[in-house]
Amino acid sequence: MKVAIAGAGAVGRSIARELVENHQVTLLERNPDHVETDAIPTASWRLGDACELTLLEAVGLHEFDVVIAATGDDKANVVLSLLAKTEFAVPRVVARVNDPRNEWLFDEAWGVDVAVSTPRMLASLVEEAVSVGDLVRLMSFRKGQANLVEITLPDDTPWGGKAVKRLELPRDCALVTILRGARVIVPEDDDALEGGDELLFVTIDEVEEQLRQLLLHAR
């Protein structure tokens, strides 16, 4: 898979290091001081402004499978996302949100498939750590208007010992994973739920409250 990463600062380089072993990675950076080819020698490096069509055409952005807008400038990330989607038809565009106040911009209208807000994710993780028995939104998938949500069942959950198949989930909601201690469980119909289980769902906004009510009250 071909991946273009705009922004070779600490965030961009970290993403590149994670991906470069299995994918063809190109880093786009406009600051010459941040172009450190020795840091990730197996990646391709291009000096230039990722918001400039000439650079994107030169690297052949239309051939890439994923573009990651990871600069420290939200305006640049939005512009690149829009260009990648509308001018080069890149299938998957992921954008970094630096300021949570700008989150409303990072949607499908601006070419963003997935918006990643570090402050929002950190806040969600804090909530997830302290919120037992309540629904916590961890991430939004903008293109499909779906969310990754988590709920930790309290120790005295009425669902303790009951099979997953008894969860009559609302429409547009799916149980993805059960985290139990050090285990990651792909749920099957006959798996029994336990107090302390962390349940991860992909769902839409409209049914999150139904899901919360369902998990707090056994049937």
Rank of each mutant, 00 (worst) to 15 (best):
M1W: 09
K2N: 06
A4W: 11
A4L: 14
A4D: 02
A4Y: 06
I5L: 14
A6L: 14
G7N: 04
G12S: 11
G12Q: 04
S14N: 12
I15P: 04
I15Q: 03
A16Y: 11
E18Y: 13
L19E: 09
E21N: 13
H23R: 10
V25C: 08
V35S: 11
E36V: 11
D38K: 09
D38N: 07
A39F: 02
A43F: 01
W45S: 00
R46E: 09
C51A: 13
L53Y: 01
T54M: 06
T54F: 06
L55T: 04
L55N: 11
L56E: 07
V59S: 04
G60I: 13
G60P: 00
H62S: 14
E63H: 13
D65C: 09
D65T: 07
G72T: 07
K75I: 00
A76F: 10
N77H: 10
L83G: 10
A84C: 09
K85H: 12
T86E: 15
T86C: 05
T86Q: 15
T86R: 15
E87V: 01
V90G: 04
R96E: 00
R96G: 03
V97F: 13
V97H: 08
N98S: 07
R101E: 14
N102D: 14
N102W: 05
W104K: 11
L105E: 03
D107M: 00
W110R: 10
G111H: 12
V114H: 11
V116I: 15
S117E: 05
T118E: 07
R120W: 08
R120Q: 12
M121V: 14
M121G: 05
L125P: 00
L125C: 12
L125N: 03
V130G: 03
S131L: 12
V132Y: 03
G133P: 08
D134W: 07
D134T: 15
V136Q: 07
L138Y: 12
F141T: 07
F141N: 01
R142P: 05
K143W: 10
G144N: 15
Q145I: 00
N147E: 12
L148Q: 05
L148A: 13
I151V: 12
P154D: 02
G160K: 05
G160S: 14
G161N: 05
G161L: 05
A163Y: 03
L167A: 02
E168F: 11
T177V: 15
I178T: 03
R180D: 10
G181D: 02
R183C: 00
V184T: 15
I185Y: 09
V186A: 08
P187K: 07
E188H: 11
D191C: 06
D191A: 06
A192H: 10
D197T: 04
D197W: 00
L199C: 00
L200K: 03
D205G: 09
E206S: 10
E209S: 14
L215I: 04
L215R: 05
L216V: 06
A218F: 06
